[in-house]
Design a protein around this nucleic acid. Structure first.
Length: 421
RNA sequence: GCGGAAUUGGUGAAGUGGUUAACACGGCAGAUUGUGGCUCUGUUAUGCGUGGGUUCGAUUCCCACAUUUCGCCCCA
């Protein structure tokens, strides 16, 4: 037997219904927020993902699906949604569009070559939005409030936004320098992972799970002390607008993002749950005013967020939140002999074309088994064909709830169902 | 990349170094039922993750691998 590749998942049965439902809710909200749908390729030139991501790019490279195609091109399966959207924004010169800012949403599978664990797959689905061309804090607030409102609408409450500002390039570099200077004498007291982070990605030491509660990190310099006046004002405005929108947030000065292109606002959305462990982060994003430029476009402000659909599904299931699932059909048509079968095939189409969901047996079942099958389909009405009735153009219809049964004219079938369903 | 746990039929699972690997649900066929939903009977093909090894003999012990799962790393 061939089984699915490691780290992939089949969405079937209720899972696929969850997936569809979440997508639908997300799409509907994005449309209300006046975002436009964008669909970019699942694979891109490798350099798109291996540029503009700063000094952690060697790590990033290891965790992407890279391959050469038959034309000897370096191809990478997208590990996230933003880069492709930014590429498309630049390539299609959307910075020159009449309508600004450009607000886009996407929905698709992403690929990372990682060890699978809770809430982490090699192929996973993210949905997200990106806004280009406005540095107004109201956009930051919009991009944060959108997912919150989607979660609420899905029934996920008790979410909290963790928010921080990384400032502009200069403030961040200054801060990085100060942090390293502060940590240097304490280097031996840090965990082994942090010693490595010290050179590679010092900001992430703030996020360390081992040293989190130690005095070293508690007394470390704060990013807020290094923010420029503009960045400070930007953050204050974002918070003010979040208050206005009644979004719960919490400033988390230790919140840093892995990549260097983020500027000013960064945020994560957590769901309040102990069972979820490390996958309680169900959405994240931030402002990245440098990325468009570093990928070859004009200086363009940008902000976005993404959320993992797989994680949302786990949360919905964990919290036992039910979603609307169609689990019944309007009619099940029953037949025994070939004459009746032909009539059944014909009526089945008539019903479907008139907007009813209907089904017939395709497994040569006897009448008894057809009754069983109709129940499994939760058919509201049973249409029982009998060759004798055909002579009088009659068919038998049975209400499968009340069990009332009557004969009606074949031609009246659609009208009958119309008035009864 | 590192570490822990798991892997029995369509499903949930019990179990053992040795002849037919429980039980339940589901599926199918039949009986009964005014055309099913209840009940009863039968049935469900050489199934114990894969490959090696130990052994007279392994699903049961050992090793490797795969997958799943939990954590670390990383998290765009």
């Amino acid at each position: 037997m061939i089984s699915k590749p490691k780290g992939t998942v089949d969405f079937i049965k209720t899972d696929s219904e969850y997936y569809k439902y979440i997508s639908d809710v997300f799409d509907a909200y994005c449309e209300k927020y006046n975002y436009k749908y964008i669909r970019t390729p699942i694979f891109e030139s490798s350099e798109l993902f291996h540029r503009g991501v700063g000094d952690s790019s060697d790590i990033v490279r290891k965790e992407t699906y890279d391959f050469k195609d038959r034309g000897d091109r370096n191809i990478t399966l997208r590990p996230e949604g933003t880069a492709g959207v930014v590429r498309s924004f630049i390539e299609n010169k959307m910075y020159a569009d009449v309508i600004q800012p450009v607000k886009l949403y996407y929905n698709g599978t992403m690929y990372r070559y990682e060890r699978p664990q809770n809430g982490r797959l090699r192929e996973f689905t993210q949905i997200g939005v990106e806004v280009f061309g406005s540095n107004d804090p109201l956009i930051d607030a919009e991009v944060i409030s959108l997912p919150i409102n989607i979660y609420n609408s899905l029934g996920i409450e008790n979410t909290i936004v963790k928010i921080n500002s990384l400032g502009d390039n200069e403030s961040r570099e200054n801060y990085k320098k100060a942090l390293k200077e502060y940590l240097k004498p304490h280097l031996n007291d840090l965990c082994s992972d942090c010693k490595e982070r010290f050179e590679k990605n010092p900001l992430r030491i703030l996020d360390c799970k081992v040293d989190k509660d130690g005095d070293i990190l508690k007394n470390a310099p704060k990013i807020s002390e290094y923010l420029s006046k503009e960045s400070k004002e930007h953050l204050e405005k974002v918070l003010e607008y979040l208050d206005l929108l009644e979004i719960n947030y919490e400033i988390d000065e230790n919140l840093v993002r892995g990549l260097d292109y983020y500027t000013d606002t960064v945020f994560e959305i957590e769901v309040n749950s102990n069972e979820l462990g490390s996958s309680k982060v169900i959405g994240a994003g931030g402002r990245y005013n440098n990325l468009v430029n570093s990928l070859g476009g004009p200086e363009t402000s940008a902000v976005g967020f993404a959320l993992g659909v797989d994680r949302i599904i786990s949360v919905l299931k964990l919290k036992e939140i039910n979603i609307p699932i169609r689990n019944e059909i309007d009619a099940y048509i029953m037949y025994v002999n070939e004459t009746e079968k032909e009539k059944a095939i014909y009526l089945n189409q008539i019903l479907r074309l008139n907007g009813f969901s209907s089904e017939i047996n395709s497994l040569n079942k006897n009448l008894k088994a057809q009754f069983k099958e109709a129940d499994r389909y939760k058919a509201k009405y049973l249409i029982i064909l009998n060759s004798e009735d055909f002579k009088k153009s009659l068919i038998t219809i049975k209400d499968n709830v009340t069990k009332e049964e009557l004969k009606i004219k074949e031609l009246d079938l659609v009208e009958y169902l119309d008035t009864h369903i």
